[in-house]
């Protein structure tokens, strides 16, 4: 299977004089794979995710997603990349409070210039699948944490991205809601969606991912799949 993510010698420094927050890191993620990135606070998990999402640029090295090298792209091309090739789910949902559930989900499609009818159909389909159709006209502030994260997932998937990135998707949820979201991610992976999730939650990592990458002080300490384990 083709690689969806390719990182080669990637280093990220926030302070030019200090130690790198990440790297050097070299790794690949194949299409259809579900990968959990774990590690203690400050280990570089979110930095890694931001680099893959094109939200941040590496200080050194090369980042390719879906065959597109993104580390040298301009802001406009990066925005287009994000809305066409990836979907992101955040710990605190990052929904726009002034938009209804439907409008939140539609936003990436509308920014991409999708036809209104087509986008609406896709949003309705996702709301049905994710069990939030009855909240279509509600505002996020009135939903439970689990429901909000489902809305975030629907928004991430509305443009049918090749890659779903999730940053601590259950970190702000109670146990029951966390379980719901965990099951949702499992289902998505089973349907063929490539997923990279960053989490402290080892149960989530175990349930959702067939491969776990553990970062320690910005370096890959463990890269383990269910079939084989590589310790660096």
């Amino acid at each position: 299977m083709a690689n969806v993510i390719e990182l080669e010698g990637v280093v990220k420094r926030y302070d030019s004089a200090g130690a790198p927050a990440l790297g050097p890191v070299t790794l690949t993620v194949a299409e259809g794979e579900a990968v959990a990135v774990t590690g203690p606070s400050g280990s570089g998990k979110s930095t890694l995710l931001n680099l893959v999402a094109g939200l941040d640029r590496p200080s050194e090295g090369r980042v390719s997603v879906g065959g597109l090298q993104i580390d040298g792209l301009g802001e406009k091309a990066l925005a287009r990349f994000r809305r066409e090739r990836i979907g992101m789910v955040f710990q605190f949902f990052n929904l726009l409070d002034d938009l209804t559930v439907r409008d939140n989900i539609l936003l990436p499609a509308q920014l991409a210039g999708s036809a209104r009818g087509k986008a609406a159909t896709r949003a309705a389909e996702l709301m049905g699948v994710l069990g939030i159709a009855k909240h279509a006209d509600a505002y996020p502030g009135r939903l439970s944490g689990g429901e909000r994260q489902r809305v975030a997932v629907a928004r991430a998937l509305v443009n049918r991205p090749a890659l779903l990135l999730a940053d601590e998707p259950t970190g702000a949820l109670d146990t029951a809601s966390g379980h719901e979201v965990r099951q949702l991610l499992v289902d998505l992976h089973r349907s063929g969606q490539t997923v990279v999730l960053v989490t402290h939650d080892l149960v989530l990592a175990e349930a959702c991912a067939e491969r776990t990458i553990q970062l320690v002080d910005g370096h890959v300490a463990v890269d383990r799949s269910r079939n084989a384990e590589v310790v660096r």
Binding site: K76, A79, R82, N94, L96, P108, L111, A112, A156
Partner: peptide, 16 residues
């Protein structure tokens, strides 16, 4: 700024 960050994260270009 946070909302703008969210919009940019889901694909809003600088021009938009």
């Amino acid at each position: 700024v946070h909302d703008l960050g969210v919009c940019k994260a889901v694909g809003m270009t600088p021009g938009q």
